[in-house]
């Protein structure tokens, strides 16, 4: 069963990556608690935080398919420069990573450009290990 984990958090003094790790721990606990009540959820494969430069609002999103990018035309165009959204490019499906999902939330909230986004490290919620950005995300967001 699928479940969307999306968060919008005000950053105080903590590092944004630490906040993403804390949320990943919450996702782990949630998946495990639900498991004990005999409804099974699976872990999302990755989670990332994104914010506009100099903003203290952090948007955390997980990998998700079929996101609608029609409200963020610049992001949609950047993704479509790699290929059709949802098709494979460098081993990953274009637009299904956590990074464009988080970027979409920030752009919708602040009407900012792609060059004004900054990302936290990408974290695998099951193990809390750091995941390298994929080549698609590196190309789109110049990471």
């Amino acid at each position: 069963m699928s479940r969307n984990f999306s968060y919008r958090i005000i950053i105080n003094r903590q590092s944004p990556t630490v906040i993403v790790k804390e949320k990943c721990q919450y996702i782990r606990r949630r998946v495990n608690r639900i498991k004990n009540h005999s409804t099974i959820y699976d872990y999302p494969s990755c989670a990332v935080g994104c914010r506009r430069i100099k903003s203290n609002e952090l948007f955390i999103e997980t990998s998700r398919a079929h996101t609608d990018y029609s409200r963020t035309p610049a992001l949609k165009t950047a993704l479509e420069n790699l290929g059709i959204i949802g098709t494979v490019s460098y081993g990953n499906r274009i637009g299904w990573c956590a990074e464009p999902n988080a970027a979409r939330s920030v752009i919708i909230s602040f009407s900012c450009g792609l060059n004004q986004l900054c990302f936290t490290e990408t974290i695998r919620p099951r193990t809390l290990e750091k995941i390298a950005y994929c080549k698609n995300c590196k190309n789109v967001f110049k990471l």
Binding site: S2, D42, S45, C46, A65, G86, N92, R126
Partner: peptide, 26 residues
């Protein structure tokens, strides 16, 4: 397929007579 690629699924099987658990990691 979209679910497989965006989730870290625990799956179970037997291979060569040995029961395995695999974390799919997408």
């Amino acid at each position: 397929i979209d679910y497989q690629l965006t989730h870290d699924i625990d799956w179970f099987a037997v291979v060569c007579g040995i029961p395995i658990h695999v974390a799919s990691n997408g």
